[in-house]
Each structure stands twice: as structure tokens, then as C-alpha cells.
């Protein structure tokens, strides 16, 4: 089943083309890496998929619904979650409160001036934290966590929305090498368990080749090659993009 279908989206900023007629598909349960040099258009693509930006042309479908004109909350309700390149958590909250916030937002319980937020959705939050191995940290402030743990909290928040598709912008950036492998193994395990599709960008090629079912290679807003890791590795266009020889 196709979870995500991107049909020829383009986007330009003040004349410069950031995305040029990009099309691809993502099947249920598939884990796809989107790679490419800085400025290739990966973050722009994510922002469009998650409703923070509108494409100039082209369409995006999540399941059967066309999301090209939807805002973020509507896209979230369709089950598209997101994590950021620099982990964005609410740093004046505890770990558990961060996850509770995500759960409350997902269930539309935020317009409530009376209940004590700290008591709501606590059990569900703890369950999610347990799955991510973060239960022991539930009462700690996010501001004192290690970066790797912060990334896990962010992941828990994304999962709180019960997504069918997870967009992860450089999930392992800023982490120590060992933490990276652990985190990505965790993401893959959760994805398989929850039948979750994952689209992620990543600079660490060990991670990409170890975990992606398929790879999309972007350069200057264009998809220049895609396929299984072995296919992409063998593609001369991909090698050129990475070794910089295409410039001369």
C-alpha cells in the first residue's frame, strides 16, 4: 500500500529553485533515506510534506488524501509525525511532560484551564517512554539530558501522535557515534513493530546503508537517482555527486 505519494513538487525562494519537479513514493512499512549535499532541498521537502511550506506546484498525497493545501495540524491528524535536525523539545518541561503535551495536543485536550496537565495522559506517556528506554528519566528536566536522550524524547513525542509515517530530519546529527547506531536501531525496531513508514535525511552513510530499504539522492533540488543501497552505491551519478567531480 502506498503511504506517501509525491507528484512533481517544485519550490523556489526568490528565484532560486530549491526543489525541482520532485516525485517519489513510500510504501507502508518502508524505511527510506533521503541524502544529498547541503542545499539539495531535503529540508524544504520535509517542510512541504509537513505543511510548514506550500509547494509552488505539484501534489502530495498521504494515503488517499491530498495534503498539498493542508496545514500542519490537519496533516498530523492524517498520521504524519516529525522530528527535527536539532532536537526541539520543550526545555522547561520534564521528559514525561513533553510526551504528555504531544498526547494532549493530539487528542485536542489543550483548551482546558482547569485540570492539572501533569496528571493527564501520564500512563500513556510512561508507556511510550518505556518503549524508548527513557522511563527512568521521566521526571528529569529536558534541559539536563544528554543529546542522545533528547533525541529519544523527541521521538517519543512524534510517536505520541500515533503516526503511520514519520519524517526524521537528520535523526543522528549531533550525537556520538555509538549513540547514533543505538538510536537508529531503535527507530528501525519501532518502525517494524508499529508497521510505521519512515522517511529520513542523514549525513552518516553507515546509518543510511545499514538501515534504509531504499535511498533517494537529491542534488540541487532534483532527484538524481534512487533505489536500494546497493543500486545507489553502484550508480556513477551518485559517486560524482559525493566526490565533487561533477563540478569540473
Amino acid at each position: 500500500m502506498t503511504i506517501l505519494r509525491v507528484e512533481g513538487i517544485s519550490k523556489s525562494y526568490s528565484g532560486a529553485l530549491a526543489l525541482d519537479n520532485l516525485s517519489f513514493e513510500l510504501q507502508a512499512g518502508e524505511i527510506i533515506a533521503m541524502i544529498g549535499p547541503n542545499g539539495a532541498g531535503k529540508t524544504t521537502c520535509f517542510n512541504i510534506l509537513h505543511g510548514q511550506l506550500r509547494a509552488d506546484s505539484g501534489q502530495v498525497f498521504v494515503g488517499d488524501a491530498c495534503t498539498s493545501r493542508m496545514d500542519t495540524p490537519a496533516i498530523l491528524r492524517l498520521g504524519v509525525g516529525r522530528t527535527f535536525q536539532i532536537a526541539a523539545t520543550f526545555h522547561s518541561f520534564t521528559v514525561a511532560e513533553n510526551v504528555q503535551m504531544a498526547l494532549l495536543a493530539r487528542r485536542g485536550l489543550l483548551w482546558n484551564l482547569h485540570s492539572q496537565a501533569g496528571d493527564l495522559c501520564r500512563k500513556e506517556a510512561d508507556q511510550l517512554l518505556e518503549q524508548l528506554g527513557m522511563l527512568a528519566h521521566a521526571a528529569r528536566a529536558c534541559s539536563v539530558l544528554s543529546y542522545g536522550d533528547l533525541k529519544r524524547v523527541e521521538l517519543a513525542m512524534a510517536l505520541a501522535g500515533d503516526p503511520i509515517l514519520l519524517l526524521m530530519d537528520e535523526p543522528t546529527a549531533g550525537m556520538a557515534p555509538r549513540e547514533r547506531l543505538q538510536l537508529m536501531a531503535l527507530v528501525v525496531r519501532l518502525a517494524r513493530e508499529r508497521k510505521l513508514s519512515v522517511l529520513f535525511t542523514e549525513h552518516d552513510m553507515d546509518i543510511v546503508f545499514a538501515h534504509a530499504d531504499r535511498i533517494l539522492l537529491l542534488e540541487q533540488g532534483r532527484l538524481i537517482c534512487q533505489g536500494t543501497p546497493a543500486m545507489v552505491r553502484a550508480d556513477p551519478r551518485a559517486q560524482r555527486a559525493y566526490l565533487g567531480d561533477n563540478r569540473d
Binding site: 526545555h91 518541561f93 483548551w111
Partner: peptide
């Protein structure tokens, strides 16, 4: 309350 938490969330990130 959840409302107050949401405000802090908007401020934090």
C-alpha cells in the same frame, strides 16, 4: 492546566 502548558510549549519551541 493544559492551556498553560501549551503556552509554555509555544514559548519553549
Amino acid at each position: 492546566s493544559p492551556f498553560g502548558y501549551a503556552l509554555r510549549a509555544c514559548r519553549d519551541s
